[in-house]
Amino acid sequence: MAALLLALLSGLLFGLGLTVSSMIDPEKVLGFLDLAGNWDPSLAFVMATAIPVAALGFVLGRKRRAPLAVPDFQEPGMNRIDRPLVLGAILFGLGWGLVGFCPGPALTALGLGLAEAWIFAGSMLVGMVGYEVVKIFLRRVPAA
């Protein structure tokens, strides 16, 4: 139960961060990605505070034997830059640049009555299921 409450609170904080910073607006995000246009550096300022605070969390977490609400930490073990990582990042960047939505903002915007957020989130889910299907057919693609 504590784990569920912590996850809910964490999701709430994440969504609030995206809302307060206006990152739920794809036009705001595209303003950052459009270096040749009317450039808006705001997204860099989001990262500039998010990354150090998250880093402090990881450092504090590592001082503990276990997380507060579950038996163990689940840190991604792999640190190799392989082909799926490269191809996946390029495909993601292409989709991100086309509309300005990445997964967090698209999901956070679902309650705001914007049809495109639902269309994007639905297509994103289909893409994720598509990945699972491809993974079954191509056993060589490592699990994400």
Partner: peptide, 13 residues
């Protein structure tokens, strides 16, 4: 874009 983001983020972890 949704399809690319969904597939790409899973492939790229």
């Amino acid at each position: 874009a949704g399809l690319l983001v969904g597939f790409g983020t899973r492939l790229g972890s």
